[in-house]
Every structure is written in structure tokens, then in C-alpha cells.
């Protein structure tokens, strides 16, 4: 019997591209379509900090060359936003008013930066660092030995911070609430890890809060940060690293259960039998913790892509909901995290 399955994957991050790869391996005849808001094919996001130390262009960050998609018969719709999902008719509506039908859907739309409410009014002065384009723009805006101020200091940000200081840039992390996110670090441990960051050359300011952000004066760095102790910090670029917000606006009204992310069981299936979710966008039921929770990081996200693909093609695998999530220091005195383990 002819296979008429059409797998649609929203997102071409790690979760989406890993899922597409396994879908093809397990079902050689089906139609597979990846939809991505970005203009590029899947890139290796974890290598983005390298943009500061080499003259590489986006081609050097590609996970697979363009030919791979032709060979694997995976169609990639780029620069294409999903604006709405209609599970009843198994249809996506794309932002340019084109419908796209699916038989099985994987939501792997990841997350965008989270900016705390108090700083939201300054969001236009805070740069983004999620895509290649954003990373390149930050790189272009940052002069040699320039100063980057990081609001929050989550693990994604700290990864960037360590490679910036290694490349001779100055980095200041401001704020306490999101430091080391998504790790939950006990108060007594926190000082130890902050000291390690400072030893690495990252300036950490947990004692102050931001009152306002302004454009810099002429001939001064591009941004000014006014702190609650009236101190003024000049910065060339400001980034927010306060954790991620799942990208899910298109699921509004779809009738699929959502809390902060798409709620899925450990098999990554949502409350709609034809819809799965994987990666930063999903909240997985943890029987051990008796709650839905996020599992971040390359290893988890990649595994989720594989498991979703397996289960969409008839398997019954579950994600391991018990994990080592401890922040540690290495023998050489640096910070390490399972979240940073990649490759």
C-alpha cells in the first residue's frame, strides 16, 4: 500500500532536524517537510560564539550541506512562519496565507529569549543572539575589546561570556535571578560559582538592579545602563540571557493542552493524537517530580528529536525524566554543566 504519510516538523533546530533525520531513516517513502521561520538551513547553534573568533560565514555553521536535504528528500520551508494550527483539519496556516496539510505534526519551535517584565520597555535596546543573523549583528556591533553587558546570566549566556572573555572582550553580567538558569543553585553554592566566573574574567554584579537603559551619547559606546545605585555602565551591546520562553503563539486556540510549553507525556505526544512536541518548546510529564517540566540542553533536545520521530513512526519510547543536572567546577577550576556538554 502506498505510504501517504506527511510528517510536518515545525522548527529546524536540533530537535526538528534530528527528528527529520530519524523520520527518513524509519520511513523512506513518506513526505517530510520542515518549516522554519529562519532563512537558513539548520545551523549548529552551539558553535555560534565562534563567530567572534573567526571569519567564518553561515555556511560554516550548517549542520548539513544543502545537498543532504535533496538526498534525504526532506523539504525545508524557510523564512516561513506557522501562524496557526488547526488539528481538526490537520492543517497549518503559514503567515503568507498558504495552508499546509499534515498527517503527523511535530512541534519543535524552540524558545525565544525571555526578558523580565521590568526590562521589557527597553527591549529595543537589547540585542538578540538566537540565530546566525542575530549573532553576526552582535559581532559586527561589538568593537575589538568592546564591552558586552549581559542581563541575567543563564547558562546559554555564560557559554557566550566565557568565549567572549577568551577573545579579549569585556563581559559584565548583571542580576541575580536568572544566574545559572536552568540550574537551580543553592544560595550557599552560588557565591562559589560566582567567584569561579570572576576568576574566568567575567565581571558579575549581583548586588545591583537596572533602573533604565538608554542610547549612548555621541562618540560613546552605544548603550548606557543606569543602576539603582546611580552608577552608569557604558556598553557596546546588551544581551538578555534570562532563560527561554517557548515559541508557541501559533498554538493559541488549537485545543492542544499548553501550560508554558506544549504539555506532552514522556513519549512526547501531546493531548492531540497526531501532534508531538520536542525540544525547548515542550513540557514533559515527570512522574518522579509529579509535574510537567522542561529538559534543556543539546543532549536532551537531540534525544527528544529522535524519540519523537520513533514514536511518530510507531515506536513506544520514553524520555528519561531523571537526569544529572548539577553545576560543577572542573579540576582546572572552571565551571562545567551537563547543559554545556555538546558534540
Amino acid at each position: 500500500m502506498a505510504n501517504t504519510e506527511h510528517y510536518v516538523v515545525i522548527g529546524n533546530g536540533v530537535a526538528g532536524s534530528e527528528a527529520a533525520r530519524h523520520l527518513r531513516q524509519r520511513d523512506s517513502d513518506s513526505r517530510i517537510t520542515m518549516v522554519s521561520a529562519g532563512k537558513l538551513l539548520s545551523i549548529n547553534r552551539y558553535e555560534l560564539p565562534k563567530i567572534f573568533s573567526s571569519s567564518a560565514d553561515w555556511r560554516d555553521f550548517l549542520l548539513h550541506p544543502p545537498e543532504y536535504y535533496d538526498e534525504q528528500k526532506i523539504s525545508v520551508r524557510r523564512n516561513t512562519w506557522v501562524s496557526h494550527v488547526d488539528p481538526t483539519n490537520k492543517l497549518l496556516m503559514l503567515h503568507h496565507r498558504e495552508p499546509l496539510s499534515y498527517s503527523k505534526l511535530l512541534i519543535a519551535s524552540g524558545g525565544g529569549r525571555y526578558i523580565p517584565e521590568s526590562l521589557n520597555q527597553f527591549k529595543n535596546l537589547i540585542a538578540k543572539f538566537g540565530t546566525y543573523e542575530e549573532a553576526k549583528s552582535v559581532c559586527d556591533a561589538l568593537p575589538r575589546r568592546g564591552h558586552m553587558v549581559m542581563l541575567g546570566g543563564d547558562m546559554i549566556g555564560l557559554d557566550l561570556a566565557r568565549s567572549l572573555v577568551r577573545n579579549g572582550y569585556k563581559v559584565t553580567v548583571i542580576g541575580e535571578d536568572h544566574l545559572f538558569w536552568p540550574h537551580r543553585v543553592e544560595a550557599e553554592q552560588r557565591q562559589k560559582f560566582v567567584a569561579v566566573l570572576q576568576d574566568m574574567g567575567i565581571c558579575v554584579r549581583t548586588d545591583v538592579a537596572i533602573t533604565s537603559i538608554q542610547r549612548g551619547d555621541r562618540n560613546r559606546p552605544d548603550r548606557r545602563i543606569i543602576l539603582d545605585n546611580n552608577e552608569v555602565i557604558d556598553a557596546d551591546v546588551i544581551l538578555s540571557f534570562c532563560g527561554l520562553m517557548p515559541s508557541l503563539a501559533f498554538m493559541a486556540g488549537a485545543g492542544v493542552d499548553i501550560e508554558r510549553g506544549v504539555l506532552v507525556n514522556p513519549q512526547l505526544r501531546s493531548t492531540d493524537k497526531n501532534i508531538w512536541a520536542a525540544g525547548d518548546v515542550c513540557q514533559i510529564w515527570s512522574p518522579e517530580e509529579n509535574q510537567y517540566r522542561f529538559y534543556y540542553g543539546w543532549k536532551n533536545v537531540k534525544k527528544m528529536g529522535r524519540i519523537a520521530a520513533f514514536n511518530m513512526t510507531g515506536a513506544d519510547e520514553s524520555i528519561d525524566t531523571v537526569q544529572n543536572e548539577k553545576l560543577v567546577t572542573t579540576k582546572s577550576g572552571e565551571i562545567d554543566s551537563p547543559f554545556w556538554q555538546y558534540g
Binding site: D70, R77, R78, N79, H96, E98
Partner: peptide
């Protein structure tokens, strides 16, 4: 290509669905 067609287009009727992976899209 035009990113805001005036009305709904059929499935596969938008040019963006015909790009090869090696093309760069600008809507």
C-alpha cells in the same frame, strides 16, 4: 518574493515552497 499575498493561496502555490535547500529566501 511577495510575503503578503492579498488572499489565501493554494497549498504549494507559493513560490517559497519551491526553493531548493541551496537557495536563499527573501520574503
Amino acid at each position: 518574493y511577495e510575503d503578503t499575498p492579498v488572499s489565501t493561496v493554494g497549498e504549494g502555490a507559493h513560490v517559497s515552497s519551491h526553493l531548493s535547500p541551496a537557495h536563499l529566501p527573501y520574503g
